[in-house]
Write a protein that binds this DNA or RNA. Structure first.
Lengths: 160, 160
DNA sequence: ATTACTCGGACAACTATTGTCCGAGTCAAG
DNA sequence: CTTGACTCGGACAATAGTTGTCCGAGTAAT
């Protein structure tokens, strides 16, 4: 089990967008994090399709959060990138082979699937507890400083 | 995020081995589940390397559980197949780019990593709560019958 | 009207997973 | 003790998913 590396980038981007007052182009976000701008664009597209960020085209275009950061959970971002499907897919092994259970007796998921789903639910619940605003506060708490403020300034500067 | 399909097979195999009194070859497990025997063998090798099952070679060889089923957790099986590494890998984005944080200020994981790790911990905790014996009991409870007993009989029969 | 800058989806390269094969080793039987 | 057949184990391809790249469509400012 392994999740896409783009999740980390997407989360960082959302936190950074917290400190922005104007739309931020994908290029700017990429050089701030020193990552491939073209690939980051792909992740931002996923966020846009999920409705978490809004894109503006044209000369002073870029991305903006659609909602207050307090109303965007980490789970929202993760699901936007990774998809909402379950990590464990039950192939109904019990209905196959010489001792196959009849389909009419398999209305409820089997014990194995129930266990896996419960674990995933716990995972999602944990991610739902934390919002992007919480992460932003965490950055300021960790560095007891103006890191986020610096980011805001850096984003405002170097503009044409 | 998606986990290997072999996890399901491995869990089913462990449950089945609960009902076996003698070593069960990979071929037999494969035809019971109607899956590729050669690929299933690979998963069983992983379980063997993890020390969950023991392999016996020769004419009446096969696989056996090394411990009582109550002492094997679902997490053990999942980690044997998927590996023990974390699903979220932090690439320390904060140390890169024009506003990079100095390495000496990055001793603790960042807030994003902490959140992801906490969620994974919750996931693992849930999987650790359930043992193979619990799953076996669940099968009997779901079908209030002798499904596991039938499996045991089927494994005993057809032997040379 | 022009121009330059933005996003968006279509197009390759690469890595990890899935699937297959044959040889080494071992136990049971004759 | 010899034979034989059956077992696992690791090395070898095929496939699918992820990572990374490119260029065209559209838009806002000039």
């Amino acid at each position: 089990m392994k999740l896409s590396g783009g999740v980390e980038w997407a989360l960082h981007c959302c936190v950074v967008l917290t400190a922005a007052s104007r739309p931020v182009p994908a290029t700017r976000l990429a050089e701030l994090h020193q990552v491939s701008s073209t690939y980051l664009a792909k992740q931002l597209q996923s966020l846009s399709r999920a409705g978490l960020i809004r894109s503006a085209q044209g000369k002073s275009g870029g991305y903006t959060l659609t909602r207050p950061a307090g109303e965007i959970t980490v789970l929202d971002v993760v699901e936007a990138i990774e998809g909402t499907g379950p990590a464990f897919v039950c192939t109904e092994v019990r209905q196959r082979g010489p001792l196959a259970c009849p389909p009419e007796a398999c209305t409820a998921p089997c014990g194995i699937a129930r266990t896996m789903y419960a674990a995933e639910q716990a995972w999602r619940d944990k991610l739902r507890e934390v919002s992007i605003a919480d992460l932003a506060r965490g950055v300021d708490a960790d560095y007891e400083g103006e890191v986020l403020g610096q980011v805001g300034g850096w984003l405002a500067a170097e503009r044409s």
